[in-house]
Structure formats: structure tokens, C-alpha cells
Design a protein around this nucleic acid. Structure first.
Lengths: 209, 209, 209, 209
DNA sequence: AATGAATGAGGGTTCATTCAT
DNA sequence: AATGAATGAACCCTCATTCAT
């Protein structure tokens, strides 16, 4: 949103963010929001068409950021994991050094974008046009994952891919929930988490049962 | 009373399960439930004291099953992961063979217990006395994990443990959601998932960054 | 009621008495009554046509007892108060000695009849055919009082008579409420009360303002 | 908003007064009130937080008025009754003249305050925070009475004091009920009533049984 | 831009009563 | 004689939204 918002609009959106985060869209109360924002119910409808419009205003930017994140960085991440690595006897060192190289940039560029609003989008959008955002995001990650599988020659079954994608999403959400106010801890935890996921995926792809 | 008491009670509970799964406790509507169950609002209160009593009836058994699951099987799982394994050059084979040995029994005994009701318990219990069940379960798994860490000499930070525990929970939930009606697929996916998690944890514990 | 009641019937009526006393007719719950009486809602309707029939069963005898009390003892009480007494210089002694003579019999005959059920009749009968019982009783007492006035030649205004009658009723009720379980205290208090009322009436009749 | 806020608020309170008077708090229906007041159920909650808040609005002022009445006028009334008066041979004249002196002022200052709302407070407040108001008022009057007793050297038993206090309350209530719309009649009746009570108390204190 | 009065559907719950068993 | 399942109206209250001011 390039358009400058009025103070009232911003106050409403700020309180709405808290409300949507706490209760989700359906369970959120416009009255509570405007009361917290210090304005009136009537005035609310001067700024937003209805409750869903407010929701959109709060999350739409975050939504597009995430879409961009998924699509833009496909190439770069594409090379991060390949079966070849796992075949090497020193695979642990290889992954480790790769992570050391990539994570700082990865984290500095991507994470600042994610916030409470991302959590709202995924967990609290039922009843809005974004209600399948979680699923769509999962699908994006899942397709991403399948492509990796095809490239590296070790296809995971569709449902495993979906599960892993969903896990990745829920991991991000959990991290943001825990440390949305503490960037440093968040990044440290995220690093750990990515190692966990990558090790897990590697294990899943590399081990014949 | 033409209809046997249990029939209506079961109808109500069946519909309640769907409703609680779809909306969570707070957002569920008793009126919707009884309409779907084909009875009247007044009659509902002949069977259940109130909405929360209905919730408890739907969910309490599942709750205790899960608690039992966590506490009973601590020992057996305890031996599944140790740092020593990861030090071996053939660690992949070792894990693989161990899983092959243990998973069938693990799955056959534990999984049949989990159902939609488990999902309700974790995701839809806000406003009930079970509302912190998700957190309590996460903590159980987390403590479980920390102990493993201490035993194997590689402590993970507290927040990583919590994250992994939460991930494990959300993974179970995701699997149940996807395949609660298809036991076979569910078990296959769960096997994959456990490999993923174990590999991930192993990676997290075994690799120095 | 000469007809012998079954145990169930008596249990219901006993619990109903408590319930009607505590909540009044309208606010009483048939469910609570039958639960306390240890029977079922269906069976209740085998014994009583409906809630009001139960109420009638509980209070009707008391009602007729009171009517009888008012009408039967008119003569005897009629002589208890006359203007002549108040004209005597030793009126206090006269009243005192009269009370001493009459009260024992008065109390022993009349009071045992009054119980919780009398209170129910007066205070908790709204919504039943007895709902104007309180008023009817007041009117009886009031007419009683007016006649005394006419006899003794000092008419009180109609509204004063009504007020005094109402006071007398409410006094009886208050005494029963306080000591319905303690006959001795009840009689002592009632004696005091009658002195109060008689002195009050005497004062009202005898003093020119 | 075409209609000024106060108009609706007043309409609601006026109808609420009638409703509370007729049914008491617990048995009053918000729907009946708003129907009579010509507004909607939703709008009611724009004016009052809930049913009890409405009750408080109707009744709180009256409550404090009565408390003030009891505590402020203690002294003045204190001198109205003493045993010495009853010992005089011309006690009737003495009381009469005292009443003639004091009553006009007493009545003109105190009575206009009492209304239907006082009745509601005493008889219809069950279920609200005022539910023991009746008892508290009775206790005030009772303590009042006991003090008189101590001063004049003729203690009445505790239960007699309570009874008389309760009688006094119920007398006030009865008068208001009868003449809440007719100030003149109300005052006349109240005068009579006070004579009655005083004579009664005098009789009770002065006569040895 | 700002206010809050007004609406009515729907939320959970209690109730007296009926009637098949 | 006894049971309790079934009904639907009514209870208090919350909600998002509209609109006159």
C-alpha cells in the first residue's frame, strides 16, 4: 500500500492485527477492535467496507510477499539439496558449509517479511477469501519439493511431499509465534529448524527402507 | 421413547465430532449439531448437561489415550535414537534397520487410537478445560526430547526442543487430518514422517555448525 | 385430605413445599422437585395433573384452615378490644390481664395450623388461582377490623384498616418464617407481636390528633 | 439517530420499573421491557450492559436515598420516644402533640423520596447485588430500635426488635404500593401508620406482662 | 470525518409438559 | 406405577452492519 494511511486507519489496523491473531477472522469482534483503536463503529465503516475488507487490508501485503518469496527464490534454493551430496561420505560437512554460506543471506532477506500477519494468514483466515491460503502455500512448497525430487531423481510420494510442506509451514508459524518480537532468537531458531528440515528431507530421500 | 437412548446420543456425538472438528468448541453451534443429528434443542439437554459436557464426551477418552501413549512408551522409544548411532559410518543402515524392526509394532499399537478426536483436542479445544492440552502434549514430547538430549550428551536449546515437539504434534495432526478415514495410507505416511523427524533430529544433534 | 397418600406423592409434596417456599410457584422447577423427591418427571404427571395442581395440593388445606380461622373466631376476638377499655385509667393493666387470659388458648389452638404453607400461600402463589389469597386474607382481616371499629364507635379510614390488616398478615408471615421450626420461640414472639398490634390499634383508635 | 438517546433510555427505564415491580428482577424479561419501550433487543444493549445494569440504573439512587434517610435522621427521631412519656398520666396528649409538631416536617422531607423503586429494591431484587437490601434495611431499623430500648431502659428481645423492624419496612412498602401515585393520601396514611407503630412499640415497652 | 442508535438473526440454556414404553 | 425421550417457546446476550445526524 503506497497510499498514506490516516492515523485512525492505522490504529484500526494495528488493533485488528492483534484481534485477528488472537481470535481468527470469524471470532474477531469489530466492536472490540474499534474500542481498542479508540474510534467508533460508524467511523470504522468509513474506512473499511466490512470486516473482511479490514482483514484483507491487514494481510494482503503479507500474502503477496509470501507468494513472491516462494517463486523468486526457487532457483537459488534449488541447488541447496541434491542427492549427490548425500552420496558423498562427507555429506555432513558439505551441508554444513552450504548452510553456513547461504543462511545468513536467506535469513536476512526473507525473515524480516514474516510477522504476525503471516500467522494470521495461515491460521486465522477462515471465512475470508484467504481461507485456503494455508493450503495454497503448502501446495507451493509441495510443488517446490516435488521438483527437487524429480531433479535429484528421488521422488517422494505426493502425500509425503504435502506433509513435509505442511510441516515446513507450521514450523515457520511456530517460530514466528514464539519469537515475533525477538529477531535474534527467531533467526537462531530458524537456522536450527532449517537444518532439522533439511536433514529430515535428506534422510527421507536418501535411505532405502 | 421409540428410539433407544444410545442411538440419539451417538448421533449427537457423531455430528458433534464433525462440528467440533470443523469449527472448534467455541465456534460450534449446538443448534447446528442437533439439527444434523435430527433431534430437538430441548432433547439435547436430556443427553448432555451443556455444550462443554458434550465436548468432553467426544474427546475425553482420546485425551487419556494420548497421555497413556506418551507415558507408557517412553522406554521403548528411548533406545531408538542415540548419538552413538550417528557416529557410525553406516548410520543410515542402522537407523533403517531399527525402524524396520520397531515401526510395525509401534504403528499397529498406537496409531489406531488416533482419530479426528485427537485433532479436535489439539486444535479445537479453546474455551474448554482441555484448552491447554496441545501445549501440555507439546511439553511432554519436549521433556521427552530433552531427556534424550541429556542421555546422548547433545543438549538442544530449550526453544529448539519446543519447536521440534510442536512440529511433531502438528505432523501427527496433519497426518490424521489427511487420512483419518484410511488406515493404510495413514500408517505408510506416518512411517515416512517418523523417518523424517528422526533424521532431522539426528541431523540437528550430530552436525556441528 | 382424608385420602391416604402414597409415599411418592408425599415425597413430591414435601419437596414441593420446600421449592415453593424458596422460589414461589412461578419460579419453582418441577424438575428440581422430582429430582429431590427421587422420582421421575413422567411419574410426577401420574400423581399431579400439572404444576399448579401440585401447588394446590400443597396449599389448599392451609388455605381453608385460614379461612376457618378468620370466620370462626370472630366472636371471641370481637370482645378483646373495645373503646371502653381505653377510656379506663388502668387500661394497660386491663389489656395485659385480658391477654394473659386469652393468649394461651388463642395460641395453642390457632398457631399450630400455620406453617410454611401459609407463607407459600401468601407470598409464593403468583400465577396460580390462589394468587390473590394474600389480598383476600387481608380483606377478611380488614373487614374484621372495620366491624370492631363500628362496634366501638371509632371508625378508622378504609385505607388504614387495610394497612393494619396487611401489617398483621405480614407479621404472621415474618414470625412463621423466622421460627417455623421452633414452636416455643414462635409463640413467645407471637405474644409480643399481638401486644404490639393491639397497642398500636388502641393508640390509633384512642388518640385524637 | 433521530431519537435522542435519553428518550429511549428513559422509555426503557420506565418500562423496566414497571416490569421489575411486577415480576422482580429474576422473573423480569428484557424482551418484554424493550417491546413495551418500543425498541429492539439489540438496541437495548446499546443502553445497558445487561439486565442487572438496568436494574441498578433503576434502583441505585433510591437505595442511597434510603441509606441516607436511615442514618441522617437518627438524632431527631431519637427524642421522639422515651419511657418517661409513657409514665405520665397524660401520655396520649404528649405523644399526640409531639407527632403534630414533628410529622409535617418528617413527612414532607422524607416521603417524597420513596416510590415504586423502593418497593422493587426491597421485594424484587433477588438475584442482584441488592438482594440483601431488604435485610440490611431491616437491620438498620432494628439497631435503631435496640438503641432506643437501651436508652429508655426497656430492652426488647432481639427477635422482637427484628420483627418490629421488619414490620416497619413492610408497612412502608405497603403504603407505597397503595398510594405511590397519590402523595396526599400516602402522607395521611403514613401519619396514621406511624401513630400505630409508635403506640405499638410504646405498648410493648411499657406494659409488664 | 465521526458518532452511536437501531436492527434482527443467532448464540447457549431452561422450562413445563406429552407420550410411547 | 414408573420411566425419560422429545418438543418448542422463551430466557439473556453478542454480533456485524446500516444509516440518520
Amino acid at each position: 500500500m503506497q497510499i498514506k494511511k490516516t492515523e485512525v486507519e492505522e490504529a484500526i489496523m494495528a488493533e485488528a492485527e492483534k484481534e485477528f491473531y488472537a481470535y481468527g477472522f470469524e471470532h474477531s469482534s469489530v466492536r472490540r477492535i474499534i474500542r481498542a483503536a479508540g474510534t467508533s463503529i460508524g467511523n470504522f465503516y468509513n474506512y473499511f467496507e466490512n470486516k473482511e475488507a479490514l482483514f484483507n487490508a491487514v494481510v494482503s501485503e503479507e500474502y503477496h510477499t509470501f507468494i513472491r518469496f516462494i517463486t523468486q527464490h526457487e532457483q537459488e534454493e534449488g541447488s541447496m539439496l541434491s542427492r549427490d551430496i548425500l552420496k558423498q561420505p562427507d555429506w555432513k560437512q558439505q551441508i554444513s558449509s552450504m548452510l553456513n554460506r547461504m543462511l545468513p543471506e536467506f535469513i536476512s532477506r526473507i525473515l524480516p517479511d514474516f510477522s504476525i500477519r503471516f500467522v494470521i494468514l495461515v491460521e486465522g483466515s477462515r471465512g475470508t477469501r484467504y481461507e485456503d491460503t494455508g493450503d495454497r502455500l503448502v501446495n507451493l512448497v509441495k510443488e517446490h519439493l516435488r521438483e527437487h525430487g524429480r531433479e535429484t531423481g528421488c521422488d517422494l510420494p505426493d502425500d509425503s511431499c504435502e506433509l513435509l510442506a505442511r510441516q515446513f509451514m507450521s514450523g515457520l508459524v511456530a517460530i514466528i509465534k514464539q519469537y515475533h518480537h525477538d529477531e535474534k532468537s527467531r533467526n537462531r531458531l530458524l537456522t536450527q529448524y532449517i537444518i532439522f528440515v533439511m536433514s529430515g528431507v535428506a534422510g527421507l530421500m536418501g535411505i532405502e527402507l
